[in-house]
Structure formats: structure tokens, C-alpha cells
Design a protein around this nucleic acid. Structure first.
Lengths: 216, 216
DNA sequence: CGTGATTAGATAGCGGCACTGTCCGAACAA
DNA sequence: TTGTTCGGACAGTGCCGCTATCTAATCACG
């Protein structure tokens, strides 16, 4: 398959494919001549993953490159790349404000983590993200929102247990890793959307109203 | 307070404040002369919220403007603006692919929603986002990931119940709405980070290892 | 075998976003 | 009075994610 067919089958323009090749998101095709290369089904699959991570997962091109590099490198711990990816998406800058609010937030999170016996590293980018959100709550005077943290941890503990269990032994190692990446990145999006729907449902339930535009 | 002090107290440059004023994120100060205006504590609070939504929540300036407009307008249904906001963050384009995968995904979601008796509108942007993720799973051949949907819905139903209950009757209506917005937008970020931490914890638990960089 | 489409690769350009810098004339602070 | 700050307008900047254009080589077809 040459680039034209790859473009037609993936729905991605040739120019964009060349761009992804340049940026290292897509491995080069197999050379068949000085200015000719052949692409396979794995290129097509990779291309679809790229579009999913960028369009649906909301990752930047650079974050996508890093995540995919971790997929390709069996040595690299996957959650590091995933943390980096989510960091890019949701916490553009945890800021260097190592101020009072930040330290109080970190203590609060550490207490909850210890209470549950979680084994987590504060090198995990998600740690700084969580602390940053908690600190922001405090700075905004919305400290009561931090009260949801325990609930979030309890529910995510169960969710993560199911997710990790579902992923162990999927057969092909490469495909497994791909599944983890897709499930993690797109799972954030799905979880957020489901939360929004649940909030609407619960709002209506609590206020005893019916939606303005019911489904169907 | 004039713009210089507002800048110093908020940590936002004067140029950026002027930019937010132009873009309608921040209401104009009270005029005290032909080229003089005074800002109050509510401007300072609004400015801090803007930075939180942009930096921590990852919203764009336009999305932030829309969300804040909904905060200011008691008529506008809040979840519409919030849906739009999250849509901007996580699902840049659900695409117009009303193809087979999309329709199958929509049927699957509708079935789950009906089974739980949720009252939700498919006008809610979160609906399209959720369907889009499900359809993407299918196109990538990761259909098994869709199996997590039920788990996500069950857990988010409980989370949303607590969140909605915590928000009802907070006293001041304007402050309540602000709390909802902050809790919803920043809550997405927090929930994602907690999920990442829980995944690390569960991975280590299942594989019986200890983190490379334990906290402390 | 010729002719037009396609290719790899390199480089330049574009449009959007989130600011940032500069200038003006007025006003405030010493 | 003199230096600083102000509001307002507008041009410019840097980054990002492509997109367009070019060249020389190769391919597909009659």
C-alpha cells in the first residue's frame, strides 16, 4: 500500500500523514526505492489510533508521540507516558506555586492515600495534578469541594481494579498495550461524559423535573 | 482598586486582564472618569476563577467565556454551558460520521441508559461525546473496552448523586453556581488524576511490586 | 515507449489561539 | 510639575496543527 491508499482508507490527508511521519508519530514505510515506500495494515491501525488519541482523547501531537513511543518501547513504564499525556490534556501547568495552599493540599491527599493504603508515587504526574486541583479549590474558597476527594478515591479504586483486571492477559502484548493506552486516554473522556449525564439525571431526579429534550 | 492592583493581587498581567476584558470574560470596572475605572473584590474573584478554569480545568478562553456567561445568566440552563465546556476540552470534534459504528454505539448507550432509568437528553453534548468514544472503541477493534461502560455509569451515578446533594442550598445563589462550575470542570481533572493514581495502585497490587519512587 | 498521475522529501506558508508590546492622550500621585 | 499609571486601540509574537508548493524520481496505462 502506498501513501495515497493509506490516506483514502484512513480518511487522513496525505499532507497530514507526511506530517505525522515527520513528527515521529507514524513509523516510516518499508522502502522499495529511492523515493518509494510501502505501508501495511499496522500503519493503518496506528493512524487510526493517532486520530483517536488526538480527536477523541484531546491529546496534543507531542503528547500523542510520547504515548505511542511508550507503546513501542517495552522497557518504558507505561503509566509514566500516560501520566504525561493526561498532564498535557488537563493540567497545562501545575505551576511552581509551592505555596501554603499547595502544601496543605498535598498533606490532605497524602492522608487520604495513606488511609487507604494506596501504593502510589509522587513522581506520578497525576499526583501533582490532583494536588493542584485541591490547592485551586482552596484558593477559590471552595474548600468544601475537596470533601468529594474521598468519594472520588473510593469509586476510582473500584473502577481501576476492574480496568486493570480486564487488561491482564489479552494475548498479544503489543495489542494489550494499545488497549491500555486507548482505554486510559479515551476512558477519561468517556468517564467525564458519563459523569455529565449522571449529573443531569440526578439534578432532574432531585428537582423532580423532566428533561426539556428527552431522548428518542 | 485599579488595574495595577488587580494585576498584583491576582498574579495576572495587566495585558492579560485587558485581553479578558476585551473577550468578555471579565466585566468592565465601574467608570470613575473618561479613562478611569475601579474594580472590586468580585473582579478579583472572577479573575481567579478564569485562571482556574483555563489553567487547571484546561478550558479555552472561548469556552471559559461561555461558561461564565451561563454563571451570570440565571435563565440559561447551566448544564448546557458545562456540556459545551467539557466538549471543548475533551471532544474537539465528534465528527459528522453518522456511520454504522456510530449508530451501534448510540443504541448501546441508549440501552444502558434505559436499563438504569436515567432521564437524560441526547441534546446534552455529553451524549454525543460518550457515543463518539464508544464508536471509536469499535472502529479501533477495542470493543471489549465498551464493557466498562456499565461500570462507569454505576459508579458515576453514585458520584453525581453525592455531588448534586452537596450543592443544593449553598446559600447565595451566585456562589452556589460558581461552586457547581468549579466542581464540575475542575472535578473532571481531579477525577482523572485520581483514576490514574488508582490505576497505578491497582497495577502494583496485582503485580505484587512496589513503586520505584514511593512517596515521602 | 511516452505521458500523466503519484511518490518521498524538503521547505514555506497559513489560520487560530492566547497572549504581549506599543502607542496615545488623559489622569493620578509626589 | 514631573513621573507614573490609566483605559483603549491595535499590531505583533510564538506556538500549534496542519496545508501548499516544489523537485526529481517512479509508477500505471495505452
Amino acid at each position: 500500500m502506498r501513501v495515497g491508499e493509506l490516506s483514502r482508507r484512513s480518511g487522513v490527508s496525505v499532507a497530514s500523514i507526511k506530517y505525522y511521519l515527520r513528527e515521529g508519530l507514524l513509523p516510516a514505510g518499508e522502502r522499495t526505492g529511492p523515493n518509494q515506500a510501502a505501508y501495511g495494515d499496522d500503519h493503518l491501525r496506528r493512524l487510526r489510533m493517532i486520530r483517536a488519541l488526538i480527536d477523541v482523547g484531546g491529546l496534543s501531537v507531542v503528547a500523542t508521540r510520547d504515548v505511542l513511543a511508550a507503546v513501542d518501547d517495552p522497557e518504558l513504564p507505561l503509566f509514566v507516558a500516560l501520566g504525561r499525556a493526561s498532564g498535557t490534556t488537563t493540567a497545562p501547568e501545575p505551576s511552581t506555586d509551592q505555596d501554603e495552599a499547595w502544601e496543605a493540599a498535598e498533606r490532605a491527599l497524602a492522608a487520604e492515600v495513606d488511609a487507604r493504603g494506596w501504593q502510589v508515587s509522587d513522581q506520578n504526574p497525576a499526583w501533582a495534578t490532583a494536588v493542584g486541583v485541591l490547592a485551586t479549590y482552596a484558593r477559590l474558597g471552595d474548600e468544601d469541594l475537596a470533601g468529594q476527594l474521598g468519594l472520588y478515591m473510593t469509586t476510582m479504586e473500584e473502577v481501576a481494579e476492574q480496568e486493570v483486571a480486564a487488561v491482564v492477559d489479552r494475548g498479544d502484548r503489543a495489542r494489550t498495550v494499545e488497549g491500555v493506552v486507548v482505554g486510559t486516554v479515551l476512558g477519561d473522556t468517556l468517564l467525564g461524559a458519563v459523569r455529565r449525564l449522571a449529573q443531569q439525571h440526578q439534578s432532574l431526579k432531585l428537582l423532580g423535573e423532566t428533561p426539556t429534550h428527552p431522548r428518542g
